[in-house]
């Protein structure tokens, strides 16, 4: 029927197709459902197991987000080995989140060696809807090691133990992260922050354990 529509165009290719298959459409590759199921079924089982283990807190997962502001709240944060210093975050070139900032944000970098968080809630504004991640609302709490966050806003009721204020950021020792030389910083042995609320641009953690994990879309943030 294609021949009747435009008789002179592409006659070579159609002739070759016709020679391949004198009857009906050309033989071509296809996905066989049963063959695909051989892989799909075990893959689904593994994905389900991973999700369940993570939700139970048996499996740690890694997070690394940046260039997009997101909010983190928790009713309580307990940490050992705490450092804090100022810094400058660069977004990826041409990032749509840059706005009028020129692609740079002034941030406070907080690093905590080992942290325990109660009722963690994390939300990313995707324009109109929010991606909401909650965890640790049950008996088991969220734990994170080598947690580093770059925040523009940080609020809460904090209590520090053995705090040293006014160190040079390059001489920090408590959490294993060193800042740029000549920058004001502080560090403490332990930290306890109640009603934590952060607006972050980047966060990394060596290992995050998220018992009671829930991932959903919501019209309101944290």
């Amino acid at each position: 029927m294609a021949l009747s529509e435009n008789p002179e165009s592409g006659s070579v290719s159609e002739a070759s197709e016709a020679s391949e298959t004198p009857d009906g459409p050309a033989r071509r590759g296809r996905v066989r459902a049963r063959r695909a199921a051989v892989m799909a079924v075990p893959a689904t089982l593994v994905a389900g197991t991973l999700a369940v283990l993570t939700a139970e807190g048996a499996l740690g997962v890694q997070f690394a987000i940046s260039g997009m502001p997101f909010t983190v709240t928790a009713t309580e944060l307990n940490g050992t080995g705490f450092e804090q210093f100022g810094g400058l975050d660069e977004m990826a070139p041409g990032s749509p989140n840059a706005g009028d900032t020129g692609g740079q944000v002034l941030v406070v970098t907080s690093a905590i060696k080992n942290a325990t968080l109660t009722k963690l809630c994390q939300s990313v504004d995707l324009g109109g809807t929010n991606l909401l991640i909650t965890a640790g609302s049950g008996a088991e709490k969220v734990t994170a090691s080598d947690l580093t966050t770059d925040s523009t806003e940080l609020s809460g009721d904090a209590a520090f133990n053995n705090i040293e204020i006014g160190n040079d950021a390059s001489t920090l020792t408590k959490a294993g992260v060193k800042g740029p030389i000549g920058v004001f910083s502080q560090q403490a042995d332990t930290v306890r922050i109640a009603n934590l609320r952060q607006t972050n641009y980047a966060t990394t953690a060596g290992v995050f354990k998220l018992p009671g994990l829930k991932l959903r879309f919501s019209s309101t943030g944290c």
């Binding site: 071509r28 590759g29 996905v31 063959r35 695909a36 893959a43």
Partner: peptide
């Protein structure tokens, strides 16, 4: 979860694909 889902579905489609099938 989005990228994981796309990757698993894509891999299954590639695994189940066979060349030169009858219509």
């Amino acid at each position: 979860f989005v990228g994981l889902l796309l990757g698993v579905v894509g891999s299954c489609l590639a695994f189940g694909w066979l060349p030169d099938q009858e219509p």
